[in-house]
Design a protein around this nucleic acid. Structure first.
Lengths: 197, 197
DNA sequence: GCCTTTTCTATCCATGTGGATAGTAATAAG
DNA sequence: CTTATTACTATCCACATGGATAGAAAAGGC
């Protein structure tokens, strides 16, 4: 009934993910998107509704994947797991390609002002989900007596959010290769200091 | 010998500071710069060498001011002062206009990739100066016996950098008015927890 | 009062942007 | 095979950008 597309949806999104990572939303032109995704500007308009709509689709896909595969598991993570998770972000590839271009959700906080509700909603999703994971992990650790009495899970989760966002910023700043590692080690040490002894 | 400029250097920089805050470097066009600074695009070219050079001048001015007036004082700050300094950033105007548009140096980390050595140098200046202040404060507190033996000043300073950058990111994310306050409180509590009891 | 120097005004320019459109090619239902 | 539907190719467009340039205007030295 209709002509087939040269590039299927999934691989187009995959290509876009990579490009938006490297160039950022504003830095990625629609011409580049054509090349990297295999889509045409025409298809970008007609079936996705333009550059921004397509970006939102890409961001949604990223978040789905991150929540499923890269966020800390609220049902199983111990404090040690959490500490190692932080270490892993600075060292290699916990979030995909983080060492090159960071987390796409974090990048969205940086590169958009808050004028677009659609983008804001994704940022909110990112932060609240992450915070929920942290709270769950701290609460469980607490109920198992694995954490100091003074550590409040809600405050602790907020600290963890900030420590994570700080890590992303440090990695983006790239003043040295050592800084992210040292910082992550310090953050991990902080978490481990919450354990009951 | 020569015609006088409509706008002097200092007030031009002040106007530019405000504009770059609100719009970011890439978002501030040279036409807007004309309006907000009183400079003409001609003067921007001839005496400052273009938009980017002028931005760097503005950023330098900002950093000078921040170091003199807004960074924590390494000679006098106690841990309590440091905790309150963090609280102040989230609450009002520790760094100028931070509640509107954040810190210009932080924004530079976010909105530039690392391809420009001139910008990188400013970012490095920002982070190393800040880290030096933190180390100095922690070391002095330590030598006065005001801090736990387990707290390492070097690691602690890195944590503080991350906590601060995290706070800026949280403020930029603007998911709620409460989040920055709560987060800053948690960070301040962490610092206060370093005190000897 | 002229002259040199610098800024100002007013265009002009090349480039890149996201998007629109018209005509063509492919694809599957009938 | 015809036809409807969708995607592809190739332009075209309006707009905004940073920057360049030429001539007028100010301002102080002589």
């Amino acid at each position: 009934m209709a002509r087939k597309r040269k590039t299927d949806h999934d691989s187009a999104v995959a290509g876009a993910l990579d490009l938006f990572w490297r160039r950022g939303y504003h830095g990625a032109s629609t011409r580049e998107l054509e090349q990297e995704t295999g889509l045409t500007r025409f298809t970008l308009q007609t079936t996705y509704g333009g550059k921004e709509k397509f970006f939102l689709k890409t961001l949604d896909t990223y978040l789905d994947n991150a929540e499923t595969r890269h966020f800390p598991d609220p049902d199983t993570y111990s404090l040690d797991d959490l500490a190692n998770w932080i270490r892993g972000i600075a060292s290699d590839e916990r979030m995909p390609k983080i060492e090159d271009a960071g987390c796409l959700a974090f990048n969205s906080i940086s590169s958009f002002d808050r004028s677009d509700p659609e983008v804001n909603a994704r940022i909110e999703r990112y932060l609240t989900t992450l915070e929920g994971r942290f709270v769950a992990i701290l609460n469980r650790a607490r109920s198992q007596g694995a954490v100091h009495a003074e550590v409040d899970p809600v405050s602790g989760a907020k600290l963890l959010i900030g420590l994570l966002l700080g890590l992303h910023t440090i990695m983006k700043a790239r003043t040295s290769d050592q800084f992210p590692l040292r910082y992550a080690e310090a953050a991990a040490g902080l978490i481990e200091g919450w354990k009951n002894r």
